[in-house]
Simulated scan of single mutants.
Amino acid sequence: MLTAIAITVDGLGFAAWLFLSSVGLTLIYGVMRILNIAHGGFYALGAYSSAWAIGLYATTGSPIVFSFLLIPLAALIAGLASGLLVERGVLKFMYGRDEVLMVLVTYAIFLILEDATKLIWGTESYVAWQPAFHFGTIDVFDIPYTVYKFIIISVAIIVGIALYIVLNKTRVGKLLLVVIEDREISAALGINVTKFFTVTFVVGAVLGALGGAITAPEISVSPGIGAEIIVLSFAVIVIGGMGSIGGAMIGALIVGFARAASVHLYPPAELFSIYLVMAAVLAVKPYGLFALAESRKI
């Protein structure tokens, strides 16, 4: 019974982190058809910005509870600045090119962002434990968990609901669906496709940075975290179906519970279990569980 509870809570916590880290990646692909390897760089920038800001705030002696507010602020600044720079400075010149070329370009950007984080913050690890420590722990059937873990789960749910409402219940969301369906017809109808691309990419970058920023208090922020998250994020969006927000949520849950189950039942299979699940899903659904329909011009 206790093992089942531990798997459930740990699975939800890991899934929430994965969803926040990968939803921006699948959003960008769904709209722009760009497999954005640079997403790992946005995650790392968010994590470093958050950890640095929280550490600096802690030295002032101010109430720790307010340090939590620095997390979304750091994600917004890091994601907005880097997203705009990458999209306006590089990607706008590459639209319409071959998808493989776009992958190579975003991979190059990822390497640049990795080096940029080292230049700005150095190669030492940052530990921003203050927000997670401040909220303390809570017992779930006598198993202690940090309250911060449930905060991350709540944030993931809020982000998922907000994206659903924006994409399905607002005029902007409906126009975005038109752009996804046919860029050329959208432009002919007077829709500013370039503006939608810019906004989508920046929102995706901010979401990636938020995934890193909100995770920073629970991990040691060090070089290489961007590469780690991009691999796991691809597993999530491939399972759920590339371009599907709902698929990213289901994919995150599947990966989260697979990892939690392996950790508690057979730890050596932790990483292997994620890719085993991905292979099993793709064997049945080659394009993922909820892949968006691809339009074909005749």
Rank of each mutant, 00 (worst) to 15 (best):
F201K: 09
E218Q: 12
K118C: 01
G288E: 09
I37N: 05
I143Y: 02
L210T: 14
S186P: 03
S62Q: 09
V179L: 04
L2P: 01
I109D: 04
Y57T: 04
A187L: 11
G173V: 03
G160K: 02
V166L: 12
A235S: 07
I229Y: 00
A108F: 03
I71R: 04
E99A: 08
P144C: 02
I151D: 03
A213F: 13
Y266T: 06
P217Y: 08
K149I: 13
V206S: 08
A132P: 01
G204T: 10
L25D: 07
V90F: 14
V178W: 00
S186E: 04
G226H: 05
S222I: 12
I225N: 07
R183A: 05
V105Q: 06
R171Q: 07
A283T: 07
V221M: 12
S22I: 15
I237F: 01
L25N: 11
L175V: 03
A132W: 00
A248P: 04
M1W: 08
G240N: 04
L27D: 02
Y95G: 05
V147G: 02
W121N: 11
V199P: 14
G204R: 10
G241S: 05
I157V: 15
F66L: 07
L282W: 01
V86H: 03
D182R: 12
A227H: 07
Q130C: 00
L56Y: 06
I37V: 15
L56H: 06
T117L: 04
Y287D: 12
L253E: 09
D182S: 14
A252C: 10
G122F: 10
I185P: 02
F272K: 02
A16W: 09
S220C: 03
A51R: 01
A279L: 14
R97P: 00
A116C: 02
I239H: 02
I219F: 13
I64T: 06
G208D: 11
M278N: 09
A44I: 01
Y148T: 05
D115E: 10
F93L: 11
G96T: 08
I64W: 01
L253I: 13
L101I: 07
G41Y: 01
Y266E: 04
I165P: 12
K92L: 07
E181Y: 10
